[in-house]
Write a protein that binds this DNA or RNA. Sequence first.
DNA 1: TTGTATGCGTTATCAA
DNA 2: TTGATAACGCATACAA
Lengths: 331, 331
Amino acid sequence: MSNRRVSLRWVAEQAGVSPATVSRVSRGSAQVSPELRDRVLRVIEESGYRPNHLGRALAEVRHGALGLVFPGLSGPYFTELLQGFEAEALETGDSVLLLASHYRADTDAKVIDLAGRVDGMAIHAGTVSDAVVEEVSQQVRVVMMCGTANRWNASVSTDNTTSGALTRHLLVEHGYRRLAFVGHPEGSPDVTSRWDAFLAAHHEVGVAPPVQPVRVGLQQSDGVIAAERILAEGTLPDAVVCANDETALGLMLCVLGRGLRVPDDLAVTGFDDMNMAAMVRPGLTTVRQPVRELATTTARLLTDPDTRPAGDLVLPTELVLRGSCGCRPGG
Amino acid sequence: MSNRRVSLRWVAEQAGVSPATVSRVSRGSAQVSPELRDRVLRVIEESGYRPNHLGRALAEVRHGALGLVFPGLSGPYFTELLQGFEAEALETGDSVLLLASHYRADTDAKVIDLAGRVDGMAIHAGTVSDAVVEEVSQQVRVVMMCGTANRWNASVSTDNTTSGALTRHLLVEHGYRRLAFVGHPEGSPDVTSRWDAFLAAHHEVGVAPPVQPVRVGLQQSDGVIAAERILAEGTLPDAVVCANDETALGLMLCVLGRGLRVPDDLAVTGFDDMNMAAMVRPGLTTVRQPVRELATTTARLLTDPDTRPAGDLVLPTELVLRGSCGCRPGG
DNA sequence: TTGTATGCGTTATCAA
DNA sequence: TTGATAACGCATACAA
């Protein structure tokens, strides 16, 4: 019977050995004579003994858990990040403690509390204050996702400047002159970089950028909202650069639903290269970002014993040309 | 300085009081004279002392954490479930340990391990074997999501039979005769119920159902695959009932991209009523399922001290008629 | 190889 | 009100 009263000490008594011996057998940490080993193993088997996690963690000074801090959870981006992180943590036998800030006021306290329950934590940029990041960085190993490293931790992000290459492509190859940008630059460091790259490309090429981005969130429904806002204005832009694929897809869906043609009436681009980008018609021109690798790399930095703060690690991204920008006409 | 060597005992020595007194002050569990209280508080403040989670949990025999076990993480459905659960857990100060099975072989072991780290766990149906569910149910409080209760735990699910009402609507109100079903009935209990209700409705009305469902997964890209499979066949069905909104949206996207008209050439329905369902054109006819409530209810059952296994709790669902089935022509 | 004893950081019981 | 002291369950130096 898997009675919950079975402790290591209880097993020791039953087997007629010392607690230390049971511990050794249980974790295979040292040599034990076959005879005693069998006796202990039998009792463990019959009693369904399982080492108590808290006792072990307290003695080992190790939680066997990793923390993951996000602003929110919605959308395929966070899903992929979460999935990759969790899968990687699973490999090393670590549990994953998830914390979403939901932009609540008491997030700092929650993060600090979380730090007391894990061996390391990944924090997505734009989620908690720098002060708190610094505080927990001194307590547990921390890796920033999509942000920048500080003195005590490392960071992993992807190259957002490809957003500039994409913009140049639209401006130079296709000769578009009026571009719109959909996204909230103040909302997240990633969007900030993409908007900056978007502006820089305009200046390089010598075309006037829009004075304002269309400030919406990063969900698919935000793309629909953006579309309606853009359609409500007098003249249509030549192309709209969305901060991510989700909004691009929502926007395309809405625009196509109104009978407009993409890219003929309006070119559309995204960022991420998520599954659906290749499946819609026309295919979505976008920037491929290794989201899963971002997650697994982060987890590995947290897990690997002999890694130390290595500054900012930037993963490469890649421009992916499909039909929605005007390339491969008819494709 | 937030030196990590500060233990309760250390604080006690610094303040010149007993450990018990520090504990009392720290957690406000008993009356302490203002004088000693201030002394202790000052040391706590200056040292940045924080009670060690493991020590506390070990003594209190309480983890302050909830586990969440899913098959996978992808898609808005799980995202919403996760978000709701996490938010509710946050309310009571519980941490959330996330475990995705990824359909791996060692899932059972992981689930059993998880059970040793939490006070209660929510398990999504179709994730782990009944035997393991039973085993962990005797160890920690368990609530099944979208499954059925056993002797030791409760379950929360939503009413999938509305899928039958939806099918009848298609058959009776619109007079469609050839329906297709997109989803994998053997893949999850939810889809099983919806497929069953779909078949039952056909029998009720006296129309022959399709011999086979279009067996694909539940992601948006699966909807695209399903569309291609359906279009590849000779004749188009009158309507296609998708197991969830995601696949319905993917399917619609693909079908509209090919120049077909919804619902004129092909009616489409989903299940969930996620955000996008109301935003696409035509609006997606679907069944509204209270996903977030499903999650919060589950979390509350796990959290509330005076709840006990209450059998199966079924949340109501509601038929939502929009344009994609043929209702409100032109809407 | 095996056992003893101590520490990990709290909480809680029982005296004082 | 306060302080010893014994759990809680396990790991590990150290001794045998």
